[in-house]
Computed example of a mutant assay.
Amino acid sequence: MAGLMMTTMVVACTPKSAERGDGGVGAGSAAQDTGPQATVTVTEPAAHATGVEPLAKVVFTVQHADRTQVEVTDADGATVKGKTAPDGGSWQPEKAFAWGRAYTATVTATTAGGTSTTATSSFRIKKKPAKVVRVTSPFGDGRTWGVGMVMVLKFGRSIPERYRADIEKRITVESTPTQEGSWNWFAKDELHYRPKTFWKAGTKIGYNAQLTGVPMGQGWYGNAHRSFTGTIGRSLIITVDDRTKTMTVKKDGTTVRTIPVSLGAARTPSSSGTHLIMTRERHARFNTMGAQDPRDRYDIPVEYAQRLTWQGEYIHAASWSEPSQGKVNVSHGCINISVKNAAWLFANTLVGDPVTTKGTPRKVDHANGYTDWNSDWDDYRNGSALN
C-alpha cells in the first residue's frame, strides 16, 4: 500500500483522561481493573498513508479485550458506515471511500473491567484516476420480476480475464430464502447471475457491487458502487411447442391457459431455447424497411409486444395471422397469438418470465437476449472466474 509504512501499537497504561492522538496515545486502566491490559494495533492503512485504495479495509489486532469498537470519520467529522469482519480483525466501509478524501480510523479496545485503549490511523484515498470504467445495471430497484430473472452488470469496456475474479470477489449477492447461484461472464463486458434452478416465488434478491477503484486492466479502474434489489413474483412459465402449434401457460405449477400460435415460417424460423421476457410494450411499431430482402420489409403497428431476443423475436398480437394460429407457421420469427390472448397474456406477465420454445429448426444464439438458462448448471458455473 502506498504511503509511510508505520504500525501503531498502544498499551493501556495511562489514566483515562490521557490525550489521544494520531499514532496511538491510548487511554489507561481503571484502578479496579487488575487483569491483563488491552493492547490494540492498527496496521492498515498505515498512519499518514496516501494513495490508499477506495475499498481499503482498516486492519487491526487486539489482545486482552472484551469488546472492540471501530469508528471511521471523514475530514468533516462525518461517520463512515461500515462493518467489522466476523473474525474481529478488520473493518470495511459499506460504500467505497471517496476519491482523494482524508479519513481517520479509531479503534477502541475495552477490557471486561472497563479499561479502554485506543489507536488511530489517519490516511488519504488516492486521487480519481484518469481512466475509469463505467459500470451500470439495466434494471431498476424495487420492482417485481419473473422466476427466470438474471441479475446483470455491464461494463464500459471489455474486462481482461485476469481481473475478473477480483471483480466477483467485490460483489455480494443476497437472496431470501437462500438459493444456490453463480456469476457468469456472459460476455467480455457483461456479468450475469442466476440461481441453479428458477427462483422460488416471493424471493427477495439483490447484489452490492463495491467496484470503485477496482483494477480492470491496462490502467483502468471501476468508477462506482452499484447495487440492485428486487422481488420475484409468482411462478409463471410459458412453453411453446412448434409440433402442436400451442403455447402452454403455467402459473404456480397449474396450467391456466393454452393458446394457439403461429411461429416463424420456414424461411424465417423462430428460435428454440429458453428465453426471458426482456421488455413489454402495450403499443409498438415494427419497422424493417431497411431489410436487404424486400420480402422482409414492413412497417406496422403492433399491440402487446413482449421482446424475447435482441434480434427482434417477440410474442405479440397478430390479428392478420389468426386463421393460421394453431395450424401453420407464417410469421417472420415472432410468436403470433390472437389479440384476445395477447391482451390476457400481457396482463399476466412480468419481465423475467421464462419462455421455452421447442421443436423449431433453429436454436437461439448465445447472448441473443438473456439466454442464461440454455446452459446446464456446471457449464454456467464454469463461466465464473472464481470457478
Rank of each mutant, 00 (worst) to 15 (best):
S321W: 08
E44L: 11
T357D: 09
F198S: 09
E94Q: 09
I205W: 13
T73Y: 10
T79D: 04
V173G: 15
A209E: 08
G206A: 04
K126S: 12
V364A: 00
L345F: 01
Y314V: 03
G21S: 09
W185Y: 02
S29H: 10
G82K: 06
T68G: 02
A342L: 11
N329F: 09
A98T: 07
K83C: 02
T136N: 04
A291T: 11
S338F: 11
K358Q: 09
R20Y: 13
G181L: 05
E19V: 13
A56C: 04
A284L: 11
A112R: 08
A265R: 06
V147K: 05
N341A: 09
Y314E: 12
A201I: 01
M1V: 15
N348Y: 15
A12G: 03
E281V: 12
G273H: 14
I171W: 01
T357Q: 13
A305I: 00
F186D: 11
S338M: 12
L276T: 12
A2M: 10
I125V: 12
I337V: 12
Y380G: 00
C334P: 12
L308F: 05
H48P: 01
G51K: 14
I205L: 13
G140H: 05
A201Q: 01
T110A: 02
Y304M: 11
T14Q: 15
T111L: 03
Q69N: 12
R243C: 12
A119L: 03
D299I: 04
A56D: 04
Q311E: 08
W185P: 07
A119W: 01
P195A: 07
T258C: 01
A12M: 06
H332G: 04
L386E: 14
L263Q: 07
K204V: 03
D76S: 08
I238F: 13
L386Q: 14
V133F: 03
K127L: 08
F228T: 14
S338G: 06
R101K: 10
T229R: 13
T178I: 06
L55V: 00
V150L: 05
P86R: 00
D33E: 05
T176C: 15
E94W: 14
Q69I: 14
A385S: 07
R295V: 10
V355D: 04
S227P: 00
I237Y: 06
P294T: 06
M9V: 06
V330E: 02
S121W: 08
R295Q: 02
V302L: 03
T61G: 02
V249Q: 10
R124H: 14
G82W: 04
N341I: 02
T120N: 13
T360I: 09
E313Q: 15
G88A: 06
I159Q: 01
Y221L: 08
A65N: 06
V72E: 06
T136I: 13
V328P: 05
T357K: 07
A105V: 02
H225T: 13
G326N: 08
G230W: 10
E281Y: 07
M289Y: 01
K200Q: 15
R285S: 09
T117D: 11
A165H: 10
H275D: 07
L153W: 03
D33K: 10
A291M: 02
N336V: 10
A47V: 08
G26Q: 01
F198D: 05
T79L: 12
V133E: 00
T239S: 00
R297E: 07
D166T: 10
R295C: 07
A347N: 10
T8D: 01
Q292I: 04
V339S: 09
T248H: 03
